[in-house]
């Protein structure tokens, strides 16, 4: 078991417009990226449980050329709404950093 923070080159989150947030998990090599994908660990269910968002609204992209897994989902609140605590959605990757990956 290794944490995602140790495996990835960067884990980051950001707005993709005011209504969507997107998470990029970039790995330092094709080898590590492939290993992580082979575990089948990253599923829409995982993000649905973690972020409390319906899994059919979550999109996962595998961007081989940059060894990156990208996850996009609707923001729980529109950017800047009274209940929104992160205008840029820049800290929403937090719960992923210490998650254990079974490799």
């Amino acid at each position: 078991m290794t944490t995602l923070g140790e495996l990835a080159k960067v884990v980051r989150s950001k707005n993709a417009g005011p209504f969507i947030m997107t998470i990029d998990i970039m790995f330092p090599s094709k080898e590590i990226y492939d290993k992580v994908i082979t575990t089948g660990f990253f599923t829409t269910k995982l993000f649905s449980d973690l972020y409390n968002i319906k899994s059919d609204l979550i999109k996962i992209y595998y961007y081989d050329i940059a060894h990156t897994i990208k996850i996009s989902m609707p923001r729980p609140f529109f950017q800047g709404d009274i209940c929104d605590g992160d205008n840029y959605a820049g800290q929403q990757y937090g719960p992923l950093v210490l998650i254990n990956i079974p490799i």
Partner: peptide, 16 residues
């Protein structure tokens, strides 16, 4: 090549 390829990720819904 990696940083240029990776830039299509930034602030976009899909890299493709």
């Amino acid at each position: 090549p990696l940083t240029i390829a990776a830039h299509t990720l930034y602030e976009n819904l899909s890299p493709f």
